[in-house]
C-alpha cells in the first residue's frame, strides 16, 4: 500500500520525456498510472524515477483520419468508450474501452499506458491485433510506427525501447467488429477476450481477423480460424467450424486459480464464435 521512494519528473513535452528516460537510471513512464501504481503499491515494481507524461499537451485527442482513427496515447479508456468518432467508426474499439476495469479505472487509465504495459489480461491488445492498428512512438532516434503484430513481444514486454514514448495509435475503422470478454470475477481483467473483424462481400466473408488476449502471455491472432471463415457465408456452422481452429493460436496457455490454460482455450473458442457472429451481423 506504500510505494517505495522514487524521484518524480513531470515532462512538458515528448522530447523531454525521451530525454529523461534516456538519462535517468531505472526510470518508468507514468500517465494514468493504473498499471504501474498498483504494482508499486505492492512493491512489485520499485522504479528509481517516474517520468510523468500525463500533462503533455496534444496527446489525448481522438480524431478521424480518412477511414482510420488516430487516438492520442493519453486518451483515457472513458474518452475512447464515449467518443462519438470511435463509436461510429470502430464500434469494437469503443466496446473494448468500455470493458476495461471499472468507471474509476476508465477515468484514469490511458490507451498508451495499457498498450505499453502489455498485461496478458488487458483488453486493448486483442482489438489492436484484430484491427491491424499501428502504434506511433517517439524515441531518441525519432518517431517510428510499429504494427500491432510486431508490438506485443511477450508477457509484459513490447517492442518499445526503454526510452520510447507512445504518442498515438492509428486504428483502421471496422464496422463489422466486436469485442467480447470473460471477465475475471475478482480482478476484472480478461480471462479471455476476443476481438473479431469481419468484412462481407456479396454475402460472403471477404476478410476476417481475430485477436485474443488472456489465454497466453501476449495477445495473439487466430489466423487459421480467420482464414477458415473467409470465402463463404458467415453461417453459424461455418463460424463454429472456423472457431475450432482457435486452439492453434496458443503455444502455452496460462492458468490461474480461476481458470486453467485448458479452460481458457476452451473459452477462447466459445467467445470466438460469439464475437465472429456479432461482427458478421454488424458487417451487415
Amino acid at each position: 500500500m506504500f510505494p517505495s521512494q522514487f524521484d518524480y519528473h513531470r515532462a512538458a513535452s515528448v522530447a523531454e520525456a525521451v530525454e529523461l528516460l534516456s538519462s535517468l537510471p531505472d526510470a518508468k513512464l507514468v500517465a494514468g498510472g493504473h498499471s504501474l501504481i498498483p504494482a508499486m503499491k505492492l512493491r512489485a515494481a520499485q522504479p528509481a524515477a517516474l517520468v510523468d507524461i500525463g500533462r503533455i499537451p496534444g496527446l489525448s485527442g481522438i480524431s478521424a483520419d480518412g477511414d482510420s482513427l488516430v487516438i492520442g496515447a493519453l486518451a483515457t479508456h472513458a474518452a475512447v468508450a464515449d467518443s462519438a468518432a470511435v463509436q461510429g467508426g470502430c464500434p469494437m474499439l469503443a466496446e473494448t474501452a468500455a470493458a476495461i476495469g471499472d468507471i474509476q479505472v476508465r477515468n484514469r487509465g490511458t490507451i498508451g499506458g495499457s498498450l505499453a504495459h502489455a498485461d496478458p489480461g488487458a483488453d486493448y491488445p486483442a482489438a489492436m491485433l484484430a484491427l491491424g492498428a499501428e502504434v506511433t512512438a517517439v524515441g531518441a532516434g525519432g518517431e517510428r510506427t510499429i504494427a500491432a503484430s510486431d508490438f506485443f513481444v511477450d508477457i509484459l514486454t513490447t517492442a518499445l525501447a526503454d526510452n520510447e514514448v507512445i504518442t498515438s495509435v492509428r486504428v483502421p475503422g471496422a464496422a463489422g467488429s466486436a469485442y467480447l470478454k470473460h471477465r475475471h470475477p475478482a480482478s476484472s481483467y480478461a480471462v479471455v477476450g476476443v476481438a473479431a473483424c469481419v468484412g462481407m462481400d456479396g454475402g460472403n466473408v471477404a476478410s476476417c481477423s481475430i485477436g485474443i488476449n488472456g489465454v497466453t502471455g501476449k495477445a495473439v491472432t487466430a489466423d487459421a480460424a480467420a482464414a477458415a471463415l473467409c470465402g463463404g457465408p458467415a453461417s453459424a456452422d461455418r463460424i463454429a467450424a472456423a472457431a475450432a481452429y482457435v486452439g492453434e493460436a496458443f503455444d502455452e496457455p496460462l492458468g490461474d486459480l480461476y481458470a486453467s490454460g485448458e479452460f481458457r482455450a476452451h473459452l477462447a473458442g466459445v467467445y470466438t464464435k460469439r464475437a465472429l457472429a456479432l461482427a458478421a451481423e454488424r458487417a451487415g
Binding site: V30, P38, Q104, V105, S187
Partner: peptide
C-alpha cells in the same frame, strides 16, 4: 481505504468531476 490493489472503490473521490480511486493516484499527479 479498503484494499491495496485498486479493487474495492472505498477511496473513490471526484477529481476534476470524475470518479477516481484515490489510492491509485499519486498526490503529485
Amino acid at each position: 481505504i479498503g484494499c491495496d490493489t485498486s479493487q474495492c472503490g472505498s477511496c473513490t473521490v471526484l477529481m476534476d468531476g470524475k470518479a477516481v480511486k484515490s489510492c491509485t493516484v499519486l498526490a503529485v499527479q
